[in-house]
Simulated scan of single mutants.
Amino acid sequence: MLNADLPWLHAPLAEALARARSHALLVQGPAGVGQLELAVKLAQSWLCEAAAPGAPACNHCASCKLFASGTHPDFQLLLPEALEAPARESLGLPFEEPDAKAGKAKPSREIKVEAVRNLLAFAQATSARGRAKVAVIFPAEALNGVAANALLKTLEEPSGLLRFVLASHDSAGLLPTIRSRCQPLPLALPERAAALAWLAAKGVEGGEGLLAATGGRPQQALAWAEAGLTDAAWQAVPKRVARGEVAALSDWAPPRVIDALQRLCHDLLRRSHGQPGQFFAAAALPAPKRAAPLLAWDAELRRAARHADHPLNAGLWIEALVAQAQAAMAAAAR
């Protein structure tokens, strides 16, 4: 069985199976709430050979067993190279580790036209089991311009029993022509109680704080916990950064450093306007007197985010970001 049983997806899955009228659905919502899992469950349900029409997959028929083993001939999952292993692992699907000797090129975060052409070859073939053919694309916004245009014609006029599920946490980044060919399926943040219960079942301590830190995204909270971040360590970030402690962030990957600082800046801006923070507890945050230094810091962080994946020297880059944050917080306190 796929590792895709997120309790808050049961209702959206049932609704999608009952209301889907298009051959192409666009699952859209914030990151970390299960867009990929919902898309994959939809695909499995459409291919299931025992479930009644409009019902979720049975998980026991021959089709479901093929699906769970990652060998279903009528299913394709299209991912960027950089997400291939972690996404398939999170779903419990098998994957092949890339050959380290094959080349030193960094795995791409884009879905390129060659991958789409392979998908179109799959789409044009006859269904092996005669029920349907389903392609899942995640994240859909990773399609580069050439790849997206190559997909358009098939997305508009699919052959035979072909169906698509595009999953996205930034649907605004999709071509309008892609969005217009899909039936939207919005996916909201799960209810707080359901998310906390799920995190507790996964053995996450301090789930309430981590859930708030991620903006209510339980999958992201779990990923942070599994990476060793505790609620106490997260709540200590504002004061440590204010003291210029680079060690507060030095163990984190550059994109995550930017993300954490942007969340801190966001909360400090809220506090400067008399509002509570969103990502940090009230006791963890100072009360800035001026917003102008924080607005300038926010602009600098947005510029720095453009280089977060490829800093020339990550250590020096993080050190500079912490110094910048310390200066902005000190100026805002005066």
Rank of each mutant, 00 (worst) to 15 (best):
M1Q: 14
L2Q: 07
N3S: 14
A18Y: 05
H23F: 02
L26V: 00
V27E: 00
V27H: 04
G34C: 01
E37V: 00
V40H: 01
L42V: 06
Q44C: 01
L47Y: 04
C48D: 08
E49D: 11
A62V: 15
A68S: 10
L77G: 04
A85M: 06
P86V: 10
R88E: 01
R88I: 01
S90E: 09
P94Q: 15
E97M: 01
E97S: 02
P98E: 00
K106S: 11
K106L: 09
I111P: 01
K112Q: 15
V116M: 11
R131E: 12
A132G: 02
N144F: 01
A147T: 05
A150S: 08
L152P: 09
K153V: 02
T154C: 02
L155Y: 03
L162Q: 01
A167T: 09
S168E: 02
S171N: 07
A172R: 08
L174F: 04
L175V: 09
P176H: 05
P176Y: 03
I178P: 10
I178Y: 07
I178T: 05
R179N: 05
R181A: 08
R181L: 12
A188P: 06
A188D: 13
L189Y: 06
L189V: 11
L199P: 06
G203A: 12
G203W: 14
G203Y: 12
G209A: 10
G209N: 08
G209D: 03
L210R: 03
G215I: 02
G215E: 10
G216T: 12
A225F: 13
E226T: 14
T230F: 09
A232W: 12
A232Q: 15
Q235A: 12
A236L: 03
P238I: 10
R243I: 06
G244H: 10
G244W: 04
A248I: 07
S250Y: 06
I258K: 03
D259K: 02
L261D: 04
L261K: 06
H266V: 09
D267A: 11
R271F: 04
S272M: 07
S272E: 07
S272G: 05
G277P: 11
F279Y: 15
F280M: 14
A283Y: 03
A284E: 15
A287R: 11
P288M: 01
R290S: 06
A291E: 13
D298C: 15
A304C: 11
H310D: 10
N313L: 13
A314G: 07
L316D: 03
I318G: 02
A320P: 08
A323G: 15
Q324S: 15
A325S: 15
Q326D: 09
A330D: 13
A333K: 07
R334D: 11
